[in-house]
């Protein structure tokens, strides 16, 4: 206790702490960025927690976090609620995530079209036999409704409700673990969760190759080039929301994430660098800020 008090006194006066909360998909990559940044900036302490994109945005609206990590855009109701509390969410796009569909390693089905994926998760295809697989009832694994991934897949691919018997798991890692033993299962996770450190897919699962339509070629999300050239269809931007334009160390940390070094760390963690359109979006936000600074 005394040691604790003692160490507190030695903290520099400009010591700053930054909290990030939200998307479970972003936790690992945000943590990697934070660790790298803190190694150089000893006066900054960054805490990263998960809980789901919905929880992160709720925390931003309630003034309980500096950055809300979100794997989906903010909803209109959330924006209304934020403005009612004089919170102005600013969206930075700092990485791109590919959503991987995974099955047990012994599953015979290799590739699916987007339409088949939608039919699987909405319960219209209930047996693997219909897709040329084994005669087994499909066992669906997904995330809970506070997950941005859950919302993204439903709104962008399914465009209808999930099947009611779809199992709602606590996080990406739990889905991966479940698929290692469930021979009739299929689940969706951020591609960062199926890659081993140093490359390659983790053992026990198989990644489904996805086709946009029956005529196109099936692409695996593990191939870097397929993401960069837009061949893999289930790709989404990852957001970091701040309350108003960030300042000081908070801005520095966000800009670090967007820098070449930051983007390299993001790539090393199994995510993808932001596309040109995302870069323009961020630059626009930042330019507005710097112009406002100059005119002051």
């Amino acid at each position: 206790m005394i040691a604790l008090l003692g160490s507190c006194q030695h903290l520099p006066e400009d010591y700053e702490s930054i909290t990030l909360k939200g998307s479970d998909t972003e936790v690992n990559v945000a943590l990697a960025l934070a660790e790298y940044y803190m190694a150089d900036e000893t006066t900054v302490s960054i805490a990263v927690t998960g809980g789901g994109s919905g929880a992160g945005i709720a925390a931003l609206i309630n003034g309980k976090t500096d950055i809300a990590n979100s794997s989906r855009p903010i909803k209109k109701e959330e924006l209304d609620l934020a403005s009612a509390r004089s919170i102005a969410p600013v969206p930075f796009i700092f990485a791109v995530d590919a959503l991987a569909f995974i099955v047990h390693q012994d599953m015979e089905v290799d590739s699916l079209t987007l339409d088949q994926i939608a039919q699987l998760f909405s319960g219209k295809i209930a047996n693997w036999r219909e897709l040329g697989g084994p005669d087994n009832a499909v066992s669906l694994y997904g995330r809970q409704s506070n997950s941005g991934t859950f919302v993204y897949l439903r709104d962008s691919i399914l465009k209808t409700e999930y099947a009611a018997h779809h199992k709602q798991m606590n996080g990406n890692a739990q889905i991966v673990e479940a698929l290692k033993s469930d021979r009739a299962g299929i689940g969706y996770v951020g591609v960062g969760y199926i890659l081993k450190e140093g490359g390659g897919v983790i053992a026990g699962i198989k990644t489904i190759k996805v086709k946009s339509d029956p005529a196109s070629t099936a692409v695996s999300p593990v191939e870097q080039s397929a993401i960069a050239n837009g061949a893999y269809p289930v790709v989404r931007p990852l957001f970091q929301y701040t309350n108003g334009m960030p300042d000081g160390k908070l801005l520095e940390f966000i800009e670090f994430g967007l820098s070449p070094k930051g983007q390299q760390i993001i790539t090393e963690n199994g995510y993808y660098p932001i596309f040109q359109a995302h870069k323009q979006h961020n630059e626009q936000l930042l330019n507005q800020y710097y112009e406002a600074q100059e005119s002051h």
């Binding site: 809980g51 789901g52 919905g54 929880a55 945005i57 709720a58 109701e77 959330e78 609620l81 809970q144 409704s145 506070n146 018997h165 199992k167 709602q168």
Partner: peptide
């Protein structure tokens, strides 16, 4: 043998992200 979702689990899962007053 079917998956189930209890009352308690539903409150725990959803209260974290629900907007107040809805």
């Amino acid at each position: 043998f079917d998956p189930v979702r209890t009352l308690t689990a539903t409150i725990a899962i959803e209260l974290g992200e629900v907007a107040y007053g809805t």
